[in-house]
């Protein structure tokens, strides 16, 4: 039903890409057919996640990295900001920091709201990445919501995770806690011109040493001043080195296997999410069922199972 749009997408029209992203993000009618069409065309991009606490400089650093990478390939930036828990609205401000662009440039920037998802990403991040990948971007940078300690969804969407910290972001006990430290492939201390950067680098280096190398990858620590683009070349080199490392250490069969498992996984998750929402609506409309629970004639566990199994609890 979207043949014209997909033909324009294939011809490289940016307006078509933008509309395809909206269709898969919003799960509009026909989105599954669109995704089936996109899927075999995707799979070649390096997906880089940029995560870290609010205010660490993720947007500015992502913009600087994108500007560098643009010299040698086509780059897409997917910038995610939180949605309001009360209105569902959002102010998406990451674009402010992005380099100037135009419709013909090798850079595409798209802002997304989490639409209520926790974990630092939007629920539809995966399908939007598929669309960008299929369009032919070489590198896709995902900038997460500002995260605290355990919003680690990015690790499932990205090949390479960059954790951005800043001096004085709290004592090293914070980083000892389980979560964010363990998912990073590359560490960055941004705002490295601030006082305390040396100590922060020393502390972080000690922690990285304790985490140790995972399948032979020596975790690099880059010091950057994103506003001046200083240290960004070294960071881009580290990102490229990680891609090369993945290519050499994991066989392509093994990676394809893992990727397919994870792809089918999030497709199932999105189908189950939708079914969950439908079941809740069903229940909401069926006051006899709810009253039966109130009268003690059946219990909520039975009702939950029956709704999922398609039966009617009585």
């Amino acid at each position: 039903m979207h043949e014209d749009l997909l033909a324009r997408f294939e011809a490289g029209e940016r307006t078509a890409l933008a509309r395809v992203i909206s269709i898969v993000e919003d799960r509009r009618s026909g989105h599954e057919e669109v995704l089936r069409w996109l899927y075999p065309r995707a799979g070649t991009a390096q997906v880089v996640g940029v995560t870290g606490a609010p205010g660490a400089g993720k947007s500015t650093l992502t913009a600087a990295v994108a500007a560098r990478m643009q010299a040698s390939g086509r780059v897409a930036v997917l910038a995610i900001d939180p949605s309001s828990p009360t209105s569902g609205g959002a102010v998406l401000g990451d674009r402010v920091r992005m380099p100037a662009s135009n419709v013909d440039a090798d850079l595409y920037v798209r802002s997304m709201s989490t639409r209520g998802s926790q974990g630092g990403l939007a629920a539809s991040t995966g399908v939007v990445v598929t669309a960008l990948d299929a369009f032919g971007f070489d590198q896709i940078l995902i900038e997460t919501v500002g995260v605290g300690q355990s919003e680690v969804d990015i690790v499932r969407s990205a090949d390479t995770v960059v954790l951005v910290t800043q001096p004085d972001s709290g004592d090293d006990i914070q980083l000892l806690k389980a979560g964010i430290l363990e998912i990073a492939d590359i560490f960055v201390i941004n705002k490295a011109d601030l006082p305390g950067a040396d100590v922060a680098a020393m502390n972080l280096q000690a922690l990285i040493g304790a985490v140790g190398a995972d399948d032979g990858w020596e975790l690099p620590l880059c010091e950057t001043v994103a506003t001046e683009a200083s240290g960004v070349d070294a960071l881009v080199d580290a990102i490229r080195a990680h891609a090369a490392h993945l290519d050499t250490t994991r066989t392509s069969d093994e990676r394809r296997h893992q990727k397919t498992v994870s792809d089918v996984g999030w497709i199932m998750a999105s189908i189950l999410d939708r079914q969950h929402a439908q079941h809740l609506q069903e229940l909401d409309r069926d006051s006899s069922l709810i009253e039966a629970i109130h009268r003690g004639e059946c219990d909520p566990y039975t009702v939950a199972h029956d709704l999922i199994d398609g039966g009617r609890a009585r």
């Binding site: 307006t15 401000g93 419709v103």
Partner: peptide, 20 residues
């Protein structure tokens, strides 16, 4: 969902942002 452009945008940048 409000995308804020920041200051000092050119017409081309605004059109690019609106399309993307």
């Amino acid at each position: 969902e409000v995308i804020y452009s920041g200051l000092h945008q050119t017409p081309e940048e605004i059109v690019t942002a609106a399309i993307e």
